[in-house]
C-alpha cells in the first residue's frame, strides 16, 4: 500500500466535481460570474491536479498531448466560424441576431444572442483549456534528465 493513498483517493473524488463545476461556470456564465475563460482554466486545473498526483504519463494517457494541441487552434476556428456563419446568413461579422429562426431585423432576438454567446464561449473555452494544458505538458515533459542524454 502506498503512503499517499488518501491523496490519490481524494483526487479521484474531487476531479469529477471540478469538471462539473467548470461546466456550470461555463453554461451559467450568462446569469452568474463565469464564462469560457474561467471554465477553461478550471478544466486545465483539474488536468494539472491529476498530473501532479498521479504523474505526467498516466495523465497523458487520458488526455493525449495531440488532442490538447489540436484544441488550441480548434477554439479559434470555432470562434471565427461563428463570425463567418453570421456573415454567411447576411448580417455583420459576429452579429448573433440571425442565429435563430425567428429573426426580425428590428427586434432584438434573445435566443439567437444566447446561442451566439454560448458558441463563442465554447471556442474560448477550447482554446484556453488547450493552451493551459499544453503549456503545462511542455514544462512538465522537459525533465532534467534530457541533459544527460546529450
Amino acid at each position: 500500500m502506498r503512503l499517499d493513498a488518501i491523496l490519490r483517493i481524494v483526487t479521484k473524488m474531487l476531479i469529477p466535481f471540478m469538471l462539473i463545476f467548470a461546466l456550470y461556470v461555463h453554461f451559467h456564465g450568462d446569469f452568474s460570474p463565469g464564462g469560457g475563460f474561467q471554465a477553461g482554466v478550471v478544466i486545465a486545473a483539474a488536468v494539472v491536479f491529476h498530473a501532479l498526483v498521479f504523474g505526467l504519463y498516466p495523465t497523458q494517457k487520458i488526455v493525449p498531448p495531440r488532442l490538447v494541441t489540436l484544441m488550441m487552434p480548434a477554439g479559434v476556428i470555432i470562434y471565427a466560424g461563428v463570425g463567418f456563419l453570421t456573415l454567411y446568413l447576411g448580417e455583420n461579422f459576429l452579429d448573433y441576431d440571425v442565429l435563430s429562426h425567428n429573426h426580425h431585423p428590428e427586434k432584438p432576438n434573445y435566443h439567437a444572442q444566447e446561442r451566439g454567446v454560448l458558441w463563442v464561449e465554447v471556442g474560448v473555452l477550447t482554446t484556453v483549456a488547450g493552451t493551459m494544458i499544453s503549456i503545462f505538458y511542455a514544462f512538465a515533459g522537459r525533465g532534467k534528465g534530457e541533459d544527460k542524454t546529450k
Binding site: 464564462g35 475563460f37 482554466v41 484556453v128 493552451t131 493551459m132 503549456i135 511542455a138 514544462f139
Partner: peptide
C-alpha cells in the same frame, strides 16, 4: 478579464 488570461499565456512564454 481577458488581460489576465493573456497575461498567464505570456508569462508561460517568458518562462519557456
Amino acid at each position: 478579464l481577458t488581460a489576465i488570461v493573456v497575461g498567464v499565456a505570456t508569462l508561460g512564454l517568458g518562462l519557456a
